[in-house]
Nucleic acid binder design. Structure first.
Lengths: 336, 336
DNA sequence: ATGAAAGCGCTAACAC
DNA sequence: GTGTTAGCGCTTTCAT
């Protein structure tokens, strides 16, 4: 079997207590003894049994995470940010993707708690209404990514979604667009907030919002095709928008390509902005200006907040955090 | 603190042994007792302490995984497949992304082993040469994704990379392409294998391979731009390829767009095939035929293989597994 | 500076 | 069917 503290103690005629002290870097061990122990540990390739340590100390140095999907790039970048911070703290991330199934989510949360994770990070799906009951009563720290579900008072890290819409509008206003079309995406809370930000920014500038130029995504359609078809219609109209803002980069790419196909010049006649800043999409064709959602930074903030919550055991002094999106200028909007 | 077996035992005037038996579904408990215990467990919202169980049984029901990156869609889909299988087996996946840093990789492997994971899944980076020493000597089962590094004899699940090149060629041959350009990507083992498959298939058909039509990816260039520029040059040449096969979908997209920009018709004059089958790329513009790398299926196979390895404790009867890629026909190649 | 004793929560192997 | 004993590998506490 694996090497234990006891084995090293036997080898060196010490008690396992001394070995344990060396292991944890306690100072009340003579330098000489310490050196001998470390040497032997290396020779035997000793690895402490974390299960045993956890049982004793109540800490596992594991954090559970529940996400709707791992193949969504937004999620992947958030996880990357978390992983980066955890790595340097010797924390491990136990991930489960629940694919929007509330029952699976509940079970995975239970499993994580059974594992005695030191904290839980929850990235709710688009339907935040079915937040697992367990999360509201557990004493394990929970950190939410994105707005914390209603009725729950836990810290969260989220993007100021309304600013996504605002920044896009401001960017275009500065470049003298005045007639905005908005591809608002699905009917979710996040999409609603961005839309609100868009509306406020346009109205704040004293401009009107044309209801006929607001488009929702059809549930099962390809986003690219959706954006394409919308823009086809817009391009054929008597009056055309000179700025198109889209909820995703793919919608924007579709709109861009339809505009080009209709003989319009981008960015001179129509400017286009996406969101997500997905390089695979933004860097193709006439490259797309896009709103970067700061996913990695969100991930890092989540990780730091989580670690702090773990440290302070109980006292919920830690407040929620919000971040701003950033615009990435590319060819689909004018330079100046 | 949390509820323990002992608490339930006290409540019900039973020994904790009986509770433990109910917990694990042993049959030598009377139906009535069992019912009482289950009821009380539910009332108290009891959750077994898995650290304690692990210490006792030596099993953690956790599997460690080391990947180069989580934001690479290929990796994300593999992880998704694994997660899917593990979920139904109540196994958890502890993931760490190491970003191509061999030292970090080694440390993360050690950490996983410290955690007593029941197995380790390793997805080596493009530089497979620095496989952590530890992996060669540990008794913990290791399963590789992709070819197992040289000198290591562990089971692995991998894609028959040579078939990626072959299938693409066959697909085009059937559609009467005869003059192939090949965007072979970087100088990695995987890219080499695909290239070999390409060469064999072309030569096997009695056709010649034009060395001037084989292109490598420049390390720090955008893939899309790389593909675009190559195709620009090809389109300007006296003799043009009528089939372009690319190592990635982005390269293919670049080539496609350059061909269109040069006034060529796709697929009538030039057919284009990518690999990866990344919907974000393939479903834009003239949609791209692409080789699907079966990532999710690889993930599921990896997970099943891992579970089997865990069960059979030691006896390495489990053999490696290989999978074939599949072509996804879209507009960039002819229908018939 | 070193060590002995106790116990974290659970389960394997046996009694009864 | 139910309970007793022992111990997984580690750390906490307290002696020495």
């Amino acid at each position: 079997m694996a090497i234990r503290l006891q084995d090293i103690a036997n080898d060196l005629n010490l008690s396992k207590m001394t070995i344990s002290k060396v292991l944890r870097g306690q100072t009340d061990v003579s330098a000489e003894t310490k050196a001998r122990v470390l040497k032997r540990m290396k020779e035997l390739n000793y690895r402490p049994n974390i299960s045993a340590r956890s049982l004793r100390t109540g800490q596992t140095y594991c954090v559970g995470m529940v996400v709707p999907s791992l193949t969504d790039p937004t999620v992947a970048f958030i996880v990357r940010g978390i992983n980066e911070v955890f790595r340097s703290a010797d924390y491990s991330l136990v991930i489960s993707a629940v694919d929007g199934d509330a029952e699976v989510e509940e079970r995975e949360v239970e499993l994580h708690l059974s594992r005695q994770v030191d904290a839980l990070i929850v990235l709710p799906g688009s339907d935040a209404s079915n937040n697992p009951q367990t999360l509201t009563i557990t004493t394990t720290p929970v950190v939410y990514v994105g707005p914390c579900p209603p009725r729950v008072s836990q810290p969260s890290v989220s993007l100021r979604e309304d600013e996504v819409g605002q920044i896009a509008v401001q960017h275009l206003l500065k470049r003298r667009s005045k007639r905005f079309a908005y591809l608002r995406g699905p009917r979710t809370a996040v999409a609603d907030q961005r839309f609100t930000g868009f509306l406020e920014a346009v109205r704040g500038a004293g401009l009107a919002v044309k209801q006929e130029w607001i488009f929702e995504t059809q549930p099962n359609e390809s986003e690219y095709r959706g954006g394409f078809e919308v823009m086809q219609r817009l391009a054929a109209g008597r009056l055309r928008p000179d700025g198109v803002i889209a909820y995703t980069d793919l919608l924007a790419a579709g709109a861009r390509d339809a505009a080009i196909a209709a003989g319009l010049h981008i960015p001179q006649q129509v400017q286009v902005i996406g969101s997500g800043n997905l390089v695979e999409v933004c860097e193709t064709g006439i490259t797309l200006t896009s709103i970067d959602l700061s996913c990695e930074e969100i991930g890092r903030k989540v990780a730091r907040l989580t670690l702090r919550r773990i440290e302070e055991k109980g006292e919920t002094s830690v407040r929620s955090v919000t971040l701003s999106p950033k615009i990435m200028q590319r060819q689909s909007t004018l330079l100046s």
